[in-house]
Structure formats: structure tokens, C-alpha cells
């Protein structure tokens, strides 16, 4: 199953992924249209300062054994058949345990309704195409790939660099 993966050496911290995510989760689906909406659409992608490079785009990792799912007392959070961690708003009681449990800080409060629920990356599954953040990334720091393909590319890159420097 494809994942959003990051080559943080390529991230210039331009925040384009955040803008694209907001637009993809707006009603208008366009930048100019999204601006005019009464409630600003949230981004599920967050570029934060990184210890290694300029920044690191962090989103919900959709963990196989997700801490947020484990701690959810009402079973509002679960992984669906697309491999996406989703929240059932009817079950969510707004206890914020998932905020505490998520090691990556991927959870944020939804602004869409007054109901207690969480807003986070949904991998843009409804769009039927690659996640908007990946498409928007001008340096291809963000990729949407099978993890094994990602690792293979990393191995090749490592060995090529080793050959050049060695």
C-alpha cells in the first residue's frame, strides 16, 4: 500500500504542501475560491523545523499499529480498507487522548463543525488521485510510493553516492 514518504534532504520548507492540502480540503477546490470561504480549510500536512534539514513535512503516518486507535475509548478511530486512519464523528467524544498518544502531533481540532472531532491527513483518497501535497511539492521531497520501492531507491542512491565519493 502506497504511503506518503519524505526525502528531507530535498525539503526547502516552502510550505507549498500545506497550501495544496488546504485547497484540496476546501469546498471550492481552487486557491482563490478557498480564500473566500468563511471557514478556512485546514491542512493535514505540517512543515516543521527539522533537526537535519530546513524542514520536514509531517502528516498522519497512518500507522499499522496506531497509538491513536489503541487509546480511543469509543473506537471512533480505526483503519479503513484503504489503509487510512479515519474518525467516526458520531462516536468521538472529544477526549483528546489521541492528541496525547500520537507521537507525531498529527491530530488537530476540526473547524468544520461544532461536533468534537479530529482533522488530519486522509491521503486524499476521495480525490482518486495522488495526495495533493505530493503533487504540489516542487522539489519532489514528498513522494507517494510503495515503501519497498522507496527503500530500493534509497539503496540505489546510497550506493551511487558511495561510488562517487569513494
Amino acid at each position: 500500500m502506497k504511503k506518503i514518504l519524505v526525502d528531507d534532504s530535498k525539503c526547502l520548507a516552502c510550505h507549498s504542501c500545506e497550501i495544496a492540502c488546504s485547497v484540496a480540503h476546501s469546498t471550492a477546490q481552487t486557491l482563490y475560491g478557498a480564500l473566500a470561504e468563511p471557514t478556512p480549510p485546514l491542512s493535514g500536512m505540517h512543515v516543521e523545523p527539522s533537526g537535519r534539514g530546513r524542514g520536514f513535512p509531517l502528516n498522519c503516518r497512518h500507522c499499522q499499529d496506531a497509538q491513536c486507535v489503541r487509546v480511543c475509548v469509543t473506537k471512533a478511530l480505526s483503519m479503513n480498507q484503504d489503509g487510512v486512519i479515519v474518525c467516526d464523528n458520531n462516536r468521538c467524544i472529544g477526549c483528546y487522548m489521541c492528541f496525547i498518544a500520537c507521537p507525531f502531533g498529527a491530530m488537530q481540532e476540526s473547524v468544520v463543525t461544532s461536533e468534537a472531532n479530529v482533522s488530519k491527513c486522509d491521503l486524499c483518497v476521495e480525490s482518486g488521485s495522488d495526495p495533493a501535497c505530493v503533487t504540489a511539492c516542487p522539489t519532489q521531497a514528498l513522494v507517494f510510493e510503495e515503501p519497498d520501492v522507496f527503500s530500493k531507491n534509497k539503496r540505489i542512491k546510497y550506493l551511487v553516492e558511495l561510488a562517487v565519493s569513494g
Binding site: S16, I19, L31, A136, P138
Partner: peptide, 9 residues
């Protein structure tokens, strides 16, 4: 493409 949203605005 895609052009920068910050610059665009």
C-alpha cells in the same frame, strides 16, 4: 507547475 501559492497571493 504547481506555482507557489504564497507568491500567487
Amino acid at each position: 507547475k504547481p506555482q507557489c501559492g504564497f507568491g500567487d497571493l
